[in-house]
Nucleic acid binder design. Structure first.
Lengths: 338, 338
DNA sequence: ATGAAAGCGCTAACAC
DNA sequence: GTGTTAGCGCTTTCAT
């Protein structure tokens, strides 16, 4: 089939090992030989068989990334960042999606391990550490992304979700809203953090926390937009209607806005809405959506470099936690028309 | 490190070969032995080392997919479809993005070949067959997706783009528009096809084709939304303003709508706009966007099954071309408020 | 039905 | 500097 080192070696009258050394930039090869080998390698556009290399060396120069859902552009951006970060160091990315199913995520972990990835990056859709058994047993380094699982005490790259919740809520407070609702998500770290930020902001501004203004929906029940829609319609049934809503993600916010408009309410005059995540299309929406940006690409790059540090055995040098600062992006859904 | 076949064999007092046979469902193993092996395999949650298997057998049970850009949800949906299609047959997907750079696409092709993928699916961002040299030399089967390159005479799965252009344009004609502009893209098969469909529809309805109503922009210059925006503003300079625009994709349409609204024109009353691709968020846009749906997930599944057929040596059984029928999704940007 | 031997294409350790 | 030897963990072929 394809050309092998053996072939190149034979052609050039050197040993296979010499070719191998040249290709891995080993120093103990004569300059003349090195040039001859490189020349031929380039002519043939030879690529070493990574299966063989991986098997022999125990290193595959590939890193796996598992995301919950690629349709969510946040994770696509994350993947882009990881890919860019790895490419700099000539590592390769193997990308897989768990389709929001914990069981599938477990399977993908095993598949990637079986393919010999050197490290694994996971934006997990699991809510417990159980699915990580084989990963932990494998001893390969791994980094959790976006959603944390504290019981694993993992290396982690994500957003400071408490800050995100606080910034969003404070933005609404500064706009003189006092009756601020929150539509939250499942019991994953991001949702929990954003809820805490919401509460913190209320407390810091001496606004009483009202339980009935908080609406938590498990994501399993419905898709994001529907969650926002139905949650908002519940909130509208309250005697004292909220004058603002902080939604834990942008899709939910889109749903909430749909519901408000359908009820002839104005956004933001009657109810201001802010999301979180800053989806790529957020500024083109029916009502351009205020949101909290989480720099997903930067998160990806950070995760990549953390993983590479771990591989180089700099376990101590590598930061354990990287929390990126969220940024407010205010648009029409809170500010109104300019 | 991890458990190996050798270990399981030793524990059970059988030979490594027997274990291997059980795991690959070979018939020539006694029922009792088979059960004992499977039992232990399950207990240990043993996963065979795919690098070793691939090296020994020449088959990796992995199929590569290269897309131009994961941020474009069309390709994310495509990937989801491929993944689902492969999973059914216990093949694994290895996903890579070329970030719209032909050179990167070439690199990814080589990487995936070096990793021993059994087949390759490519939604290519190349505009010539040059980048496919190593792929062709490798002899592994491949399928092109979405964008065709006729000089390769490849196996192909995509949309009937001529039909897409025709349907979109006819929709505008049925709404009594006669001065229909087209904003097109680079010289790739999809753009060319949609432009042809546009022309066909005009001709079929005896509407003269006017060259100045067609605006082609190379994608390299600007991002989709900007293209639409600037192209539309050029079109508005025409003496006779268009009363409708068919944009070759949704992002361009979003840009066109922005431009129209910024110029105090009403959509669709003054200018109706239709896109193509039916982005996931299309219905939540500033003006919900009419578009042409291309069933990307189904395309992905078709491509997966085509690739698997090719692997099973059913080269003749496998269809050479699969063109999916596009569907009109009419929303507010052409129909107005309901 | 079971297993011993050879080898996939490469790297690692050690000679020369 | 260069090459030899011995694997990496599997599959394949061919005995038994």
């Amino acid at each position: 089939m394809a050309v092998r080192m053996k072939d190149i070696a034979a052609e050039l009258g050197v040993s296979l090992v010499t070719v191998s050394k040249v290709l891995r930039n080993k120093k103990d090869v004569g300059e003349a030989t090195r040039k001859r080998v490189l020349q031929r390698v380039r002519e043939l556009n030879y690529q070493p068989n990574m299966l063989a290399r991986g098997l022999a060396s125990g290193k595959s120069y590939a890193i796996g990334l598992i995301v919950p859902d690629l349709l969510h552009t946040f994770f696509a951006e994350l993947a882009k960042g990881v890919s860019a970060g790895l490419r700099k160091e000539s590592y390769q990315l193997i990308l897989a999606s768990a389709e929001e199913e914990p069981e599938l995520e477990r399977l993908e972990i095993e598949h990637l391990l079986a393919r010999g990835v050197d490290a694994l990056l996971i934006a997990s859709c699991q809510n417990s550490a159980g699915g990580f058994a084989s990963l932990i047993k494998s001893k390969i380094p791994y980094v959790l992304l976006d959603r944390n699982l504290e019981e694993l005490n993992p290396h982690f790259v994500g957003t400071d979700d408490v800050a995100a919740g606080r910034i969003a809520t404070e933005h609404l407070i500064q706009l003189d809203r006092r009756n601020i609702a929150h539509i939250g998500g499942e019991l994953i770290s991001t949702s929990v953090g954003r809820l805490k930020g919401y509460k913190d902001a209320l407390k810091a501004n001496r606004i009483p926390f009202r339980k009935q203004l908080v609406f938590i929906r498990s994501r399993l029940e419905e898709a994001g937009v529907q969650i926002g829609n139905s949650a908002m319609s519940e909130l509208l049934k309250l005697k004292k209607r909220p004058d603002a809503v902080f939604c834990y993600n942008d899709l939910t916010a889109v749903g909430a806005i749909r519901c408000l408009l359908a009820n002839k309410l104005r956004v933001p005059e009657d109810v201001a809405v802010i999301g979180c995540g800053n989806l790529l299309l957020s500024s083109y929406l029916e009502v351009p959506l205020s949101s909290i940006d989480q720099s997903p690409q930067q998160q990806g790059e950070e995760a990549a470099s953390m993983a590479l540090s771990l591989l180089e055995g700099k376990s101590k040098a590598a930061a354990k936690y990287v929390l990126l600062k969220p940024k407010l992006i205010a648009r029409q859904s809170t500010l109104g028309r300019a």
